[in-house]
């Protein structure tokens, strides 16, 4: 059966990664546009939970029980098993998230199949028998449209570019037995360490409150308070990460995360190009900086010229004074 496949990414505790619900929504829309079939595939030691969740979005989900996924990096095991299934189920295009696991799956799958990759999709439509994919390149300076030259390929999709919407009815789940040994060399996970204070992935946050060098070691408590009040996540510049005020996982920019929240509230951030490339596609950028000449003023929607240690608490007070949504 020819069509589109969505690779369901599975977290360490067997759940479907959020990004996969977005990717599934995108692929389902494309399949409808193309008149193609769409299915999901979930590879895990126990795929039940993730497959059930993915079936809320797609008419058909293949569930592969692969014990090796328990103690090896998921992406390696999944890529090999998925490559093995492609022949039986003539798939044309694969869709997966553009995060660490999705990229690793895409890279291995591409090597095993020779399929090309269009990376970091921010949107897609269907034309001439294949997906036409929009990407934001050079840190948002340019939007390009790309297509595959042949009739097969892998698309990695950025988080937050589609709103996940379940299908009208849940799809059916088919159990698939993997055959043959895994041929890629074994990498073992010998320990999983949860770091205290590891926050929700900032790529998925609707609102990000971000702090820079201006925030200082103590100021991140204020940043976090404002983020909590807004129901958002905390981000940071490399300067703040290098200073050890906040983990690298929260860094936004060229060598950190690329985010596209509805609101990016920057406190004490100058807006260096390497930071800008990670956040300039945010829908709304608001900045508090005491320097009116800071580069961030050139691309923010609203700039407050002032000291963040004075303006920050005032913002908090103002937010707290607002009636809560839903309250009378």
């Amino acid at each position: 059966m020819a069509g589109l496949w969505v690779i369901g990414e599975v977290t360490a505790d067997g759940k479907l990664a959020n990004i996969s619900t977005e990717v599934a929504t995108l692929a389902r829309t494309l399949a409808a546009e193309a008149g193609k079939e769409v299915a999901g595939v979930v590879v895990a030691a126990d795929p039940t939970e993730a497959a059930t969740e993915l079936a809320r979005y797609l008419p058909r989900v293949l569930a592969v029980t692969e014990p090796a996924a328990a103690d090896r990096p998921w992406s390696m095991v999944a890529a090999e098993r998925i490559a093995g299934l492609l022949e039986a189920d003539t798939v044309e295009f694969e869709f997966v998230g553009a995060g660490p696991d999705g990229r690793d799956v895409a890279g291995v799958l591409s090597a095993l199949t020779g399929w090309g990759i269009i990376a970091n999709a921010v949107g897609a439509s269907w034309a001439d028998g294949g997906p036409v994919v929009e990407m934001s390149v050079f840190g948002g300076k340019l939007t390009t449209t790309s297509a595959f030259t042949g009739s097969a390929g892998i698309v990695t999709v950025r988080p937050n570019v589609v709103t996940a919407e379940p299908a009208a009815s849940a799809g059916k789940i088919e159990q698939v037995k993997p055959t043959g040994d895994l041929a890629q060399p074994t990498v073992k996970i010998i320990e999983r360490v949860a770091e205290a204070g590891a926050a929700a992935p900032i790529e998925e946050a609707r609102i990000i409150v971000s702090g820079g060098r201006g925030v200082g070691p103590e100021g991140f408590a204020l940043v976090k308070e404002i983020a909590d009040q807004l129901g958002g996540a905390v981000g940071a510049t490399r300067a703040a990460v290098d200073a050890g005020w906040i983990p690298y996982a929260q860094q936004i920019g060229q060598t950190g995360k690329i985010v596209k929240p509805q609101l990016y509230l920057a406190l004490g951030i100058s807006g260096a190009i390497q930071h800008k490339v990670g956040m300039q596609t945010a829908e709304t950028v608001v900045d508090v900086n005491r320097d009116p000449e800071a580069p961030i003023a050139d691309f923010a929607d609203l700039v407050v010229i002032g000291d963040l240690f004075e303006v920050g608490p005032a913002i908090l007070a103002e937010l707290r004074a607002r009636p809560r949504p839903g309250s009378a």
Partner: peptide, 18 residues
Amino acid sequence: TTKVLGSKAPPPRAATLV
């Protein structure tokens, strides 16, 4: 395996409110 069909600058941001 892939080709670029076209490219455009994203819509300019609105003027900054100071």
